[in-house]
């Protein structure tokens, strides 16, 4: 078993009384494309910031390829924040120079290579004049110029049109194919994630609820449809449920064997995640 790409032990981050992350312990395998999903405010961005070293944990630790992240950018990590800060009045060339000067490990050829992909980015264009897709391409080129082992992407696709989304994913997947980079990517666009991710990390209310290979996680779950007055026959953990007058539809973890009178189906990634998110929202509503 190789060292995990990312390893968190008792990781917590509190902002005043708000527990953004609370006592999280998990490993993420190397070379995988990992979907980081969860409702708004679940702690996804906090987790990515902690992994990058931009913020420090309140308690616990996080390490990348065996070396702890200590309050500064870890050399093996590249992080693309949600707002993608790039100086709008600089040209692409000037931004590359500025960012290159700030990084110890820096590959100018790799940056050029990524900028030349797809339609290519004009180096003399001002950042503010670029399309959202081209701006994302520049931001990813800058991240990959660090030759990272772990690439952290916070909502990389959210403001992109379908073509730019496809092209952005293509750049990231090419990086995985070329260099075996581990990618941890948060997104609300579940359909995009299910196309490209092979590992799932589900964070709800500051805690890790699921962490595993997408196929394995899906295989552990069943969607059961059956008589509402016979739910006690169902084994396993009911994640979420919707109930009509006579019929119940349950998302269940570990429902084997399927009880007589019930029909079982395998969920897809999207319906699985939505089931967990709906359950979290209902719990939150019940507390209010």
């Amino acid at each position: 078993m190789s060292t995990p790409a990312l390893c968190a032990a008792g990781l917590s981050k509190h902002f005043g009384r708000v527990r953004a992350l609370d006592d999280c312990t998990f490993d993420l395998p190397e070379g995988r494309v990992i979907a980081l999903v969860g409702p708004n405010g679940a702690g996804k961005s906090t987790l990515l910031s902690l992994a990058s070293g931009l913020i420090r944990p309140t308690a616990g630790s996080i390490s990348v390829h065996g070396t702890p992240v200590r309050g500064r950018m870890h050399p093996d990590v590249a992080y693309l924040a949600q707002n993608r800060p790039l100086y709008p009045d600089f040209t692409v060339r000037e931004v590359i120079q500025a960012v290159g000067a700030m990084n110890e490990r820096w590959s100018q050829p790799r940056v050029e290579e990524v900028l030349d992909m797809l339609a290519g980015v004009d180096r003399d264009a001002k950042v503010r004049a670029l399309s959202a897709g081209a701006r994302t391409q520049v931001a990813i080129a800058l991240a990959l110029g660090r030759l990272p082992k772990v690439l952290l992407l916070d909502e990389p696709l959210s403001d992109l049109d379908p073509l730019a989304r496809d092209e952005t994913l293509r750049i990231v997947m090419t990086e995985v194919a070329d260099r075996g980079t581990t990618v941890l990517m948060s997104s609300h666009l579940l359909s995009d994630l299910s196309e490209v991710c092979d590992h799932l990390l589900l964070v709800v209310e500051g805690q890790v609820r699921l962490n595993g290979d997408v196929e394995d996680v899906l295989a552990e779950h069943r969607v059961l449809v059956g008589p509402r007055d016979d739910e006690s026959a169902v084994s396993g953990v009911v994640v979420s449920a919707s109930r009509a007058e006579r019929q119940a539809t349950l998302l269940v973890r570990g429902a084997d064997p399927v009880p007589a009178g019930w029909v079982a189906d395998r969920p897809d990634l999207e319906s699985l995640v939505v089931g967990y998110l709906r359950a979290a929202r209902e719990r939150a509503a019940a507390r209010r």
Partner: peptide
Amino acid sequence: PTAREVVEATAVNPNTVLK
């Protein structure tokens, strides 16, 4: 086709191709 070639053509995850 290599994983890289498939990724360039279809933007799928190279791990999926290898699988």
